[in-house]
């Protein structure tokens, strides 16, 4: 539900696009085209919009980096090389690697079933895959506590086998997979549906097996969309806070991911260190957005003509 369809971001190009603020003054006879407003209105609206964006988005982003380097570069490096910080970074990378892999496999499998076949109940299945988008992260964490926690439904068998899920890595991974569940599938399903099944039928009529059809025809056709999904999935997996917070137990150096580490440092008034770790995640967000912008032009190529 929260994903943006790639084509949504394609802007009309300048040729017959919006009039520039400067151009408007030169229209003939003082009459402006029917499709736009007086220059003063346009400038005012633009400035209000930019001020709003600056206030709510630009400043917070800038502040992360300013605060991170406030006490100098040495303090920044020290904050990041703290053993607990390093442990948090390692854990975050591990959790993201596992959950992104799981979601890529699931995304490919689900989109093959959904996009290449006609069956009853398809739209219900798509809705269910989207469901985690609309569940509060805290609720997402809670459901695993209710299932696997010390008072959970499966507490007895887990204790008997000595398996620890809550307050341990498996719980963090499960909660992360839950909140990122739809990311890859959501990018692939609409694209593969638009692409149809003709190319697969052609490959099979030429003697290709199901697997070689998938790897030689289907997968190359959606590679950019897949990468796009992986990117968004990874950003969310590394940054997830609420769900992970509920299942993690906050054990320093053991079950603290980067966002949780940021919280602990912040609550201990170690603002510099907190923002230092936060700057890494902010950087990840920026890189993700840049890569996403670059990918969007590639995505347009995959849309069927």
């Amino acid at each position: 539900m929260s994903t943006i369809h790639p084509t949504a971001l394609v802007q009309p190009l300048a040729s017959d696009g919006p009039p520039t603020l400067a151009k408007q003054a030169r229209t003939q006879n003082g009459h402006r085209p029917a499709r736009t407003e007086p220059a003063a209105v346009r400038i005012a609206l633009t400035l209000i919009a930019l001020a709003f964006l600056g206030l709510f988005i630009g400043l917070p982003l800038l502040l992360v980096f300013v605060e991170a380097f406030k006490r100098g570069f040495a303090a920044y490096v020290a904050a990041l090389s703290d053993p607990d910080a390093l442990a948090a970074i390692r854990l975050t990378l591990l959790v993201a690697a596992i959950s992104v892999t799981a979601n890529v496999i699931f995304g490919l499998v689900a989109s093959w079933a959904i996009a290449k076949f006609e069956f009853a109940g398809k739209s219900l299945l798509i809705t269910l895959i989207d469901l985690p988008f609309s569940v509060s992260p805290v609720v997402a964490g809670l459901i695993y506590v209710l299932l696997f926690g010390s008072q959970g439904l499966l507490a007895a068998p887990l204790q008997a086998w000595d398996i620890k899920i809550i307050f341990a890595l498996p719980g963090i991974v499960l909660a992360t997979i839950f909140v990122t569940f739809p990311f890859v599938a959501r990018e692939l399903i609409p694209l593969m549906q638009d692409q149809g099944t003709a190319e697969e039928e052609a490959a099979i009529s030429l003697g290709a097996s199901g697997f070689s059809t998938f790897f030689r025809v289907t997968l190359p056709n959606v590679k950019w969309a897949l990468l796009y999904g992986v990117l968004l999935c990874n950003a969310r997996a590394m940054g997830e806070f609420g769900a992970v917070s509920v299942v993690s137990g906050h054990v320093r150096g053991l079950t603290n991911t980067m966002p949780l580490h940021i919280e602990i440092l912040y609550n201990e008034y170690q603002f510099g260190a907190s923002f230092a770790v936060a700057s890494l995640l902010a950087l990840l967000a920026l890189v993700t957005l840049i890569a996403k912008t670059i990918l969007e032009s590639r995505l347009a190529e995959e849309e069927p003509r």
């Binding site: 003709a198 052609a202 490959a203 030429l206 070689s212 056709n221």
Partner: peptide
């Protein structure tokens, strides 16, 4: 040999690779 209505050419392959597909698989 089946020629599809909208051709169903593999869009990520060159003309050569499209024609070679049936031999390569």
């Amino acid at each position: 040999g089946f020629v599809f209505q909208h051709y169903a050419l593999f869009r990520h392959m060159s003309v050569f690779e499209n024609v070679a597909f049936g031999l390569r698989v």
